[in-house]
Each structure stands twice: as C-alpha cells, then as structure tokens.
Computed example of a mutant assay.
Amino acid sequence: MEELQKRLDDTAAKLKIEDKKKKVEEIGRQSSDPNFWADHIKSTVVMKELSYLSKQIKKVEDIQQLLDARDFNQAEKAIGSLEMDLYFSGDHDFDGAILSLHAGQGGTEAMDWTEMLFRMYLRYSENQGWQYEIIDKIAGDEAGLKSVTFSIPETLAYGLLKSEAGVHRLVRQSPFNADKLRQTSFALAEVIPILEENSEIVIRDDELEWHFTRSSGKGGQNVNKVSTAVRLVHKPTGIIVESQQERYQGQNRETALKILRGKLWRMMEEQKVKHINELKGSFKLASWGNQIRSYVLHPYHMVKDLRTGFETSDTVSILNGKLDDIILSYLKKTATVV
C-alpha cells in the first residue's frame, strides 16, 4: 500500500497535476467568454488540451480511489499506465504532427517502399483512432510515391511519431525485377509538430515568397479553374513548402504556414536558439546518414531499430501499423523524466 501510494504521489508530482488542475480552471473561465469561441481553430486546440488534462487528472483521482478501496492489483496496473505519461516531456509532445515521407536511393523500389511506409503510418493512425489529412502527394513514375505529406491533428501525435524521424532501410527480393534480385531501398521520414500561430514562432510577411498554381489535388472542377496550389518560400532559411490538396487557396496557405512553423521550430531546436533571427545557414532536409531502422524481408524477416536495439521477426505486424512496442522502446530510451 505505502509503496503504491508513493509511486502515485511521485508520478502526480512529476506530471504537475496540481498545476494542471489550475490550468483546467483557467480554461473553464476562458471558455465562458463568448469571444473565446470566435476563433474556431484556437478554441478547438484549447478544448482538446482541456480534454487531455481532465482525463489525466481523473486518472490520478481514480487510482487514489482504488488505493483507498485496497484494490491494489488494479491500482498497480493503473499506475503503470499513468507513468507512461512521463515519457512525454517535450514542449510540443501533446501537439498534432505533420509527417513527410521522401523516396531515397533505389528508384522505383524506393518509391514503392515509401508507399509501404505511408500505408504503415496510416494503419498506425487508424489503430490509435486518429484522423489524418493528406497535404501533398507526388506519385512515382512507375509505382509508389516520390513523396507524401500528411497531418494528424491529434493529441500526442507528435510525442509518439517523433520517434519515426530518420531514414528507414528496406531489404527484400525485388518485385520489379524478373530475376527477383535482392534489393536495398531507402526512404526518409520527417516529423514536425503542428504549431498554430503564436508568439513562439513569429514569421514576418516580408520574409515570405508565395507562388500559386493550379492544383492537381482534390476539389473537382474548382482546382482546374483557380490557382489553389501553394508554394511557399521562407527567404531567410530557404525552406520551401508546398500544399495543394485543399479545395481553396486560403486553406492551402494556412496549411503551408503550419508546416513552415514546424520546420522553423525544429531548426531552432537543432541549433539551440530561441528566436528565428538567430538561425544560421539554410534549411537542410533531415540527413540521409541518420538511418534509424532496418526492415529485412529477405533472406529472413527482421525489423531492428538501430537506436534502441529493439528487434522483432514479425515484419507483417509492423508493416500493418502495429508500432506500439517499437515506439515505446524509443520513448523509454530517450525519456528525460521517469
């Protein structure tokens, strides 16, 4: 009893539950103001935060009730689940995520591999009960995808998917070669948080260069008549963002700005600076030398994470989006507060 109570108290303290109770009260006061609901995007984000905070507070209260009722077995399981929340200590771990996949070396093989990874992450999102939206997609010349970008505006999406950033290597018998030769292909995953407009990332209008073209994305005849596709260049860093999947230009502009904010935030994190004007040099795509995971389908089956040492021979489950164990191994290895 005493040991479990101490675990609960320690975990609640590390999660700053008392501060979160105050935050819930503050959001309650904000939401009672009619002006709060005028900004639909901001109010939606705040209410998602409220929902998560309320659930976490309730977890702690429910565990305390289990301990008071001397239901120690259920309490221990619940404390273990609560301790998982300690792995998410980053500034934007609770935000949504934007995930981009790029085909690397290997031609058609690599493009097919990129599409396989895209399917894997869609399955993972579905398993989590997440909604997602495709922002930009470029088909391969013969098969697969050259690149694809999609957003997942769900709580904890970035905290979980940040583990996937880097190079993914596939080894298999080629389905595109009559001799079925063993082929190695590469694809790069970029993961950034969805950042709404705020004081953390301030982008001046004179730093932006906009280009508009007719979209090949969804939207029916509208996209063939109006320049809805957006190409955005951030002149100080050279970051280029494209968005064309939305029906209207304004929606694609906002999506492009969200991606730009995420890329700038990541660049600031990498260079350890606090302001955009302190950034040095031009933006570079995540390094192809940063190989994080290997997927071998021939001559044996093995998925191995090169950062954590996690490995499994159940490649089918992994490629079907069952990534919980492999992501958890990364979170445990990189957690700063446990």
Rank of each mutant, 00 (worst) to 15 (best):
residue 51 S to R: 12
residue 104 G to L: 06
residue 57 I to R: 04
residue 103 A to H: 05
residue 112 D to W: 02
residue 105 Q to A: 14
residue 88 F to I: 04
residue 47 M to E: 13
residue 48 K to L: 09
residue 116 M to T: 07
residue 112 D to T: 14
residue 49 E to L: 13
residue 93 D to H: 06
residue 38 A to I: 08
residue 65 Q to A: 15
residue 91 D to C: 00
residue 66 L to D: 13
residue 68 D to R: 15
residue 87 Y to R: 05
residue 40 H to L: 14
residue 125 S to W: 00
residue 66 L to I: 04
residue 59 K to A: 09
residue 121 Y to K: 09
residue 109 E to W: 03
residue 82 L to G: 07
residue 111 M to V: 02
residue 122 L to P: 00
residue 123 R to A: 00
residue 131 Q to F: 13
residue 62 D to G: 02
residue 31 S to T: 14
residue 115 E to R: 11
residue 136 D to Q: 12
residue 101 L to G: 02
residue 117 L to D: 03
residue 43 S to R: 03
residue 86 L to F: 10
residue 110 A to K: 06
residue 36 F to V: 14
residue 120 M to T: 10
residue 35 N to D: 13
residue 70 R to E: 10
residue 112 D to G: 15
residue 31 S to W: 02
residue 123 R to F: 06
residue 135 I to Y: 05
residue 111 M to K: 13
residue 53 L to H: 08
residue 62 D to T: 01
residue 40 H to F: 07
residue 53 L to S: 05
residue 91 D to G: 04
residue 63 I to W: 01
residue 95 D to V: 09
residue 51 S to K: 15
residue 100 S to R: 09
residue 70 R to P: 01
residue 46 V to I: 14
residue 78 A to I: 00
residue 51 S to D: 15
residue 63 I to P: 04
residue 69 A to E: 08
residue 70 R to N: 03
residue 57 I to N: 02
residue 66 L to P: 03
residue 48 K to R: 15
residue 88 F to M: 02
residue 58 K to A: 15
residue 117 L to R: 05
residue 40 H to S: 15
residue 102 H to N: 13
residue 113 W to Y: 10
residue 93 D to F: 03
residue 53 L to A: 06
residue 93 D to W: 04
residue 103 A to C: 14
residue 56 Q to I: 12
residue 106 G to C: 01
